[in-house]
Write a protein that binds this DNA or RNA. Sequence first.
DNA 1: AATGAATGAGCATTCATTCAT
DNA 2: TATGAATGAATGCTCATTCAT
Lengths: 204, 204, 204, 204
Amino acid sequence: MSAERSLSSIRPPVGDKREAILRAATQVFARNGYFNSKVADIARVAGVADGTVYLYFKSKEEILHSIFDRSVESAILEGRKQLETIADPREKLRRIANLHLERLGADRDLAVVFQVELRSSTKFMEEFSAAGFAEYLSLIRATFEEGQRAGVFRKDLNAKVVSKVLFGALDEMATNWILSKRRYKLAPVADEVMDIFLNGVSAA
Amino acid sequence: MSAERSLSSIRPPVGDKREAILRAATQVFARNGYFNSKVADIARVAGVADGTVYLYFKSKEEILHSIFDRSVESAILEGRKQLETIADPREKLRRIANLHLERLGADRDLAVVFQVELRSSTKFMEEFSAAGFAEYLSLIRATFEEGQRAGVFRKDLNAKVVSKVLFGALDEMATNWILSKRRYKLAPVADEVMDIFLNGVSAA
Amino acid sequence: MSAERSLSSIRPPVGDKREAILRAATQVFARNGYFNSKVADIARVAGVADGTVYLYFKSKEEILHSIFDRSVESAILEGRKQLETIADPREKLRRIANLHLERLGADRDLAVVFQVELRSSTKFMEEFSAAGFAEYLSLIRATFEEGQRAGVFRKDLNAKVVSKVLFGALDEMATNWILSKRRYKLAPVADEVMDIFLNGVSAA
Amino acid sequence: MSAERSLSSIRPPVGDKREAILRAATQVFARNGYFNSKVADIARVAGVADGTVYLYFKSKEEILHSIFDRSVESAILEGRKQLETIADPREKLRRIANLHLERLGADRDLAVVFQVELRSSTKFMEEFSAAGFAEYLSLIRATFEEGQRAGVFRKDLNAKVVSKVLFGALDEMATNWILSKRRYKLAPVADEVMDIFLNGVSAA
DNA sequence: AATGAATGAGCATTCATTCAT
DNA sequence: TATGAATGAATGCTCATTCAT
């Protein structure tokens, strides 16, 4: 990486502008809302011309999709990687919860886009749901089912519902954090949620 | 009733048009999204002229607010009323959860507006949060605290977090129901959620 | 007239509402401009319902015409009457100038409508020109020609141009008075104008 | 010049579109009146898209202001320049009068905008008055005062009133020319006006 | 690849006018 | 006569997208 940087010409590396546009869009969408954001604003913040945006993205909507895709993809990758080193399903779920809130807590603008802007239309929600989101829920469900088989989680519970309950609880924490006037750390909230959740789903 | 109708003048009852517009807007917003909905569409569905909408509402945004206000107000009223007849805090929370999902499950368009359209902008979310929503969360929290004092709920839990966990779980059920291709009854899901939740928060 | 008044019922005399609407319109047009004035505003100021305006006038434009017609008509009538008692053409023109500025100076709103609003469109200007205005200019011209025949005014001048010069000078005084921040009496300005004018047109 | 043209790119010169829009707007305003003119009409006549108008002007109103500003500015510049070569204050005023009517007489549409459209609202009149118009009146007044000091004009006259009398007379000539069905040259009328005016204000 | 001037479809809102009562 | 709720045509302006350079 250092070699690449030192060798690279003054011209920015390929993909640099694409990144800049995604970062700019995250900021602009978070502060003005998707529908009130102008492509020109994104271009200005990214330091490129309006037309340049269309060299990297087909439309304003595709930018929103890309923000989502990029983040969920990396979240799932990192999640899977970390879970490999953990054996206990309860610890696995704790890890998922922590990662979930850590990531959102680390980038407020990104969190706003995820918690607010991505919910703007059923159409988008459906695509959103169809894509990485389903995979994310699956990861939770699979982990829970693993725990059911291992006898650490109640076998009478519907794993699908359980995974939604956990996701919903975490999602609500993130949304509340965004909207809260008070400034507090989001990640630690994961422990409180897991306390309730694990107590609710653990086998006697 | 038939007598009343036959005697009443041909003129529609006061508030008829306002109601028609709110109903039409709920449908239109639900199907196209708030930002993609045209006031002309709402007027057409409501069976009035475009200009008539502005005799009852100051702006398109005020229509969205009115849909929210009217529904939350009636939900809280009904909730409080029903809770009066119940003593057990666990049963109270079950009742809240049931009402929550029953109401949304009874009107898919309204549910879409609540679960999707009302989340479209931080600005609206903040107002939304500030208004009836905060009151709704309070109702849950107060009920939980009542249970803590009565010794039925764990005293080591933060009531604020607990109320958000419950709300988040229910909210997620509603959102999933809307987005689901499968058609199922939403209200019964409340029991599954409460099974996990109450198990998680009940005192040993 | 007194008999008529004392005999009239509590109900306002016929024409009362028409008058009220014209007065209201003069005020509203003067303060907001013709195009920015709403018929509803006029109705409110006149103390009648919106629809009532249309019982007395065919359209908003007709109200403007009526304000003009009524005023010019009465101005010409009064002008002719007063001129009958004067023999000297110079005095006659002085009288016309005084009446012109007295009338406008007596009702600022009316003056604004005359000096500003009535000039808003060539279409209106043309009609305006065709109607009473031409008659008014004729009155000035005839008086001047009378003076030429009597030998008091220069015979080498074109009476048409002269009448426009006088009208233009008076008109400018009125417009300036309206736009001026300073509050001063308009009528006395007539003497200053006539000093210059008569000196310019009088025979040696 | 031909070389320059053949070498210059196909791209039109900078300011070309702005000029085209101003010219088109002058024509459209003159023929339909400011309030009845649609921005779309202006765009069509200028040969540009509707949106392009807003790349050069902030609003429809700004177009009107710009027409006025551009013309008055150039008129004052040219006026001052020509006056430098003249010594006699009487000749200077004659020159002003001639320029005034020559300019308006040379572009009927522009004249209509000046004599009619710019008078449409007190608000505009006030701005209009405050801006270049005041400067124009000052130019006349200063010239008259110069003549008073030189002993060629009556010292008993109020220079402010005198300048308005002259402006008003010229203004009326322009307005009448616009409204007249007959087609005649406007500029020569200046001499007739000045004949009366100078006779009226000259010292014995 | 990059630019940014140009495009033109799209829409919330206003308000003169009508008409059932 | 009088009302005022209802109408619906009309338009300034925005902004995502294109494309000549």
